[in-house]
Simulated scan of single mutants.
Amino acid sequence: MPELPEVETVRRGLAPVLVGSRIAGLDARRPDLRFPLPERFGERLIGQDIIRLERRAKYLIATLSSGEDLVMHLGMTGRFTVVQDGFVDRPGEYIHETGPNPTHDHVVLHLSNGTQVIYNDPRRFGFMVMMPHAEQPEHALFRKLGAEPLGAELTDTYLTRRALGKKVNLKAFLMDQHVVAGLGNIYVSEALFQSGLSPDRLAGTLADRRGGPTRKAGKLVDAIKDVLERAIEAGGSTLRDYRSADGTKGTFQERFSVYDRAGTACVTPRCGGVIRRAVHAGRATFYCPRCQR
């Protein structure tokens, strides 16, 4: 499943195409994806200008001139293709390993300048919903989401306040979308390594005796932001169903310090440790038992 950096890469690729454009037509080639498509889907989209394209956690949000938001989730294999002036582009460069099969082109937006934006999803775990923009923060998809990891709200004070008294381990704590929104398995492992914190450490230890943030809490916040920003710069990670449109891979997986490196030497100079694999809350965790305490 694409994680936050992959979704942000897709957003940055789609924004120049969608923002400021008008939707002139819609082809909904099936009634549902993971969930049924919105009622009166075409009626609510056609004729609307796209004002903004934002990301919240792993959701793409297109704000329309009607005052509604079109919220899109890529699921496991969802991707967009842009057909513009005879050229084909796949923003984010992520496509299924078997190639884009037109059979799975489920939703097509026709823009007023002739551009087509095609949503393809072989496994149909993605979805699209619509809601009034003013109601978005309180919608069931969003109201319980935690801080945006690349936003100003994720600070050592915020993280410590949420961790105070918690006896859950750090890996499970950071994977909780109610705490940090959109932070996925790969990047939690990488951020914990970069901050030198064991995935087994209790979340409550981020706070000092007075309940304030420790130095380790600050290092963890900095590591989360740095790992995500570097992953976005690299175009995300290519795992399982995702590879680049031109046949090359997203490059961040080539820079993993611990993820999927069990049994190999730690990259920290003079450490001498060997990367281990463990399972936390049903997800694989990779860490160095010497570097991470």
Score class of each variant (00 low, 15 high):
residue 162 R to F: 08
residue 162 R to C: 02
residue 162 R to K: 15
residue 162 R to Y: 00
residue 163 A to E: 03
residue 164 L to R: 15
residue 164 L to P: 01
residue 164 L to N: 11
residue 167 K to F: 04
residue 167 K to A: 12
residue 167 K to D: 05
residue 170 L to T: 09
residue 171 K to E: 10
residue 172 A to C: 07
residue 172 A to E: 13
residue 173 F to V: 06
residue 174 L to Q: 04
residue 175 M to T: 07
residue 175 M to H: 11
residue 175 M to I: 05
residue 176 D to V: 11
residue 177 Q to E: 15
residue 178 H to V: 10
residue 178 H to D: 03
residue 179 V to W: 04
residue 179 V to C: 01
residue 180 V to M: 08
residue 180 V to D: 00
residue 180 V to F: 10
residue 180 V to W: 03
residue 182 G to H: 08
residue 183 L to C: 10
residue 183 L to R: 02
residue 183 L to I: 04
residue 184 G to L: 08
residue 184 G to R: 02
residue 185 N to Q: 09
residue 185 N to L: 03
residue 186 I to P: 04
residue 186 I to Q: 06
residue 186 I to M: 05
residue 186 I to T: 09
residue 187 Y to C: 14
residue 187 Y to L: 04
residue 189 S to F: 13
residue 189 S to T: 13
residue 190 E to R: 08
residue 190 E to C: 05
residue 191 A to S: 15
residue 193 F to W: 12
residue 194 Q to R: 14
residue 194 Q to M: 15
residue 194 Q to F: 13
residue 195 S to N: 00
residue 195 S to F: 10
residue 196 G to P: 00
residue 197 L to W: 04
residue 198 S to L: 06
residue 201 R to Q: 08
residue 202 L to E: 15
residue 203 A to H: 00
residue 203 A to L: 10
residue 205 T to A: 04
residue 205 T to G: 03
residue 205 T to M: 12
residue 207 A to I: 12
residue 207 A to S: 07
residue 208 D to P: 03
residue 208 D to I: 07
residue 212 G to Y: 01
residue 212 G to H: 09
residue 212 G to D: 01
residue 214 T to E: 00
residue 214 T to H: 03
residue 215 R to K: 15
residue 216 K to R: 06
residue 218 G to C: 11
residue 218 G to P: 01
residue 218 G to R: 15
residue 219 K to D: 12
residue 220 L to Y: 07
residue 221 V to F: 03
residue 224 I to P: 08
residue 225 K to W: 02
residue 226 D to L: 13
residue 228 L to N: 02
residue 229 E to V: 09
residue 230 R to D: 12
residue 231 A to V: 06
residue 232 I to M: 09
residue 232 I to Q: 04
residue 234 A to K: 09
residue 234 A to E: 10
residue 235 G to V: 06
residue 236 G to Y: 03
residue 238 T to G: 14
residue 238 T to K: 05
residue 240 R to I: 04
residue 242 Y to D: 03
residue 242 Y to I: 12
residue 244 S to F: 14
residue 245 A to M: 03
residue 247 G to N: 01
residue 247 G to P: 05
residue 247 G to C: 01
residue 248 T to F: 09
residue 250 G to W: 11
residue 250 G to S: 15
residue 251 T to H: 13
residue 251 T to D: 14
residue 252 F to R: 02
residue 252 F to H: 07
residue 254 E to D: 14
residue 255 R to T: 11
residue 255 R to Y: 13
residue 256 F to L: 08
residue 258 V to K: 08
residue 260 D to T: 14
residue 260 D to E: 14
residue 261 R to C: 00
residue 265 A to V: 13
residue 267 V to E: 14
residue 267 V to I: 04
residue 268 T to S: 05
residue 269 P to L: 08
residue 270 R to H: 14
residue 270 R to K: 14
residue 270 R to I: 06
residue 271 C to L: 10
residue 272 G to C: 02
residue 272 G to M: 07
residue 274 V to H: 03
residue 275 I to Q: 05
residue 276 R to I: 10
residue 276 R to F: 07
residue 277 R to D: 05
residue 277 R to L: 11
residue 277 R to Q: 13
residue 278 A to L: 04
residue 279 V to K: 13
residue 280 H to M: 12
residue 280 H to I: 06
residue 281 A to G: 05
residue 281 A to F: 14
residue 282 G to C: 07
residue 284 A to F: 07
residue 284 A to D: 08
residue 285 T to K: 00
residue 286 F to D: 01
residue 286 F to P: 00
residue 286 F to M: 01
